[in-house]
């Protein structure tokens, strides 16, 4: 179906902008023309199933992966030619927990990490270490998944970067620590102007933070939009339909998800509510309800869309 979903955000300024990123690993296509646009100051959530290309996209921004073609810009700099400058401005939590120097003790690892970042905030690092309950005398490689995650989060935040790139940041955290982490993240972005790019498949966790959404499938960004636009334009319609109902020609290509029982249909449709309702009514349906979707429901609807 010809997509009606927006895939570009229009005008910047963008903290991150990529154009037509392509990447293959052997015979697998990881990225197929990705135009990622993260406005400055946004909390951008990138969702998609495993293997959709989220991690590869994020790694490209740090020059940890090189695209076969296409360009990437982080604050106007090309990570490929300006890798160190880009990385100095980015706090990064990688997908993997076993990253880095497993033999170092956590305290030493933080010291080591600090030397790379002139903006490292010692007091803040100590505050984070306390908040995350970090065991400074333990070897990083011996930590549990959740403990390692917390160390990585402290390392990403403590130099107060302009951009945070968080790849499944709450992976491995227990519910209490997850909640506290989100609290620390909110405090962080209120104190320090920061652009945040989060990849996750746990959308409900970042529901209260996100203001932009990117939906990735099979190496493509199938939707990229502001959250208020998402809630305004994507709605779930419940309607009674007549016997022998054959659908709504006027809505071709805009129905993101269909379900229903008997003569009641429940469709998630992209479009202005008045217009969608008009189409449904003129096809003989009685519209009972048109409601915005929660961020998670919207993400699921967009991800399960059949092309």
């Amino acid at each position: 179906m010809a997509s009606v979903l927006p895939t570009h955000l229009g005008d910047g300024p963008f903290a991150v902008a990529t154009q037509a990123l392509n990447k293959r690993f052997g015979r697998d296509t990881a990225l197929a023309g990705v135009d990622l646009q993260v406005p400055e100051g946004a909390v951008y959530v990138l969702v998609g199933p495993n293997g959709a290309g989220k991690t590869t996209t994020l790694r490209t921004l740090l020059d940890l992966v090189r695209a076969d073609s296409g360009t990437a810009e982080v604050f106007g700099m090309n990570p490929r030619t300006n890798g160190p400058s880009v990385r100095a401005q980015v706090g990064y939590v990688p997908e993997r927990h076993d990253w880095g120097y497993g033999w170092m003790r956590v305290g030493r690892l933080l010291e080591h990490h600090a030397t790379y970042f002139p903006t490292w905030d010692r007091d803040y690092a100590e505050r984070l270490a306390r908040a995350f309950d970090l065991r400074l005398d333990r070897k990083f490689g011996k930590l549990s998944k959740g403990q390692a995650r917390r160390v990585q989060l402290a390392m990403a935040l403590a130099h107060r970067p302009r951009l945070l790139i968080l790849d499944e940041p709450t992976d491995g955290l227990d519910p209490v620590m997850r909640d506290e982490t989100l609290g620390l993240l909110v405090e962080h972005i209120t104190e320090t102007p920061t652009t945040v790019l989060i990849s996750t498949h746990l959308v409900h966790e970042v529901d209260r933070l996100a203001d932009h959404l990117g939906v990735m499938r099979d190496g493509k960004l199938t939707a990229q939009l502001r959250r208020d636009e998402l809630h305004r334009m994507l709605r779930r319609y419940r309607a009674d339909v007549p016997e022998g109902w054959s659908g709504v020609p006027g809505l071709n290509g805009t129905v993101v998800r269909r379900s229903g029982i008997g003569r009641e249909i429940q469709w998630s449709v992209w479009g202005e509510e008045a217009e969608v309702t008009r189409h449904l009514v003129s096809a003989g349906a009685t519209v009972r309800d048109a409601a915005p979707l929660t961020l998670e429901d919207a993400a699921i609807a967009l991800l399960s869309r059949k092309d």
Partner: peptide, 9 residues
């Protein structure tokens, strides 16, 4: 924002 874990904006 911090209490509710909500975006400050």
């Amino acid at each position: 924002a911090a209490d509710l874990r909500v975006n400050p904006n």
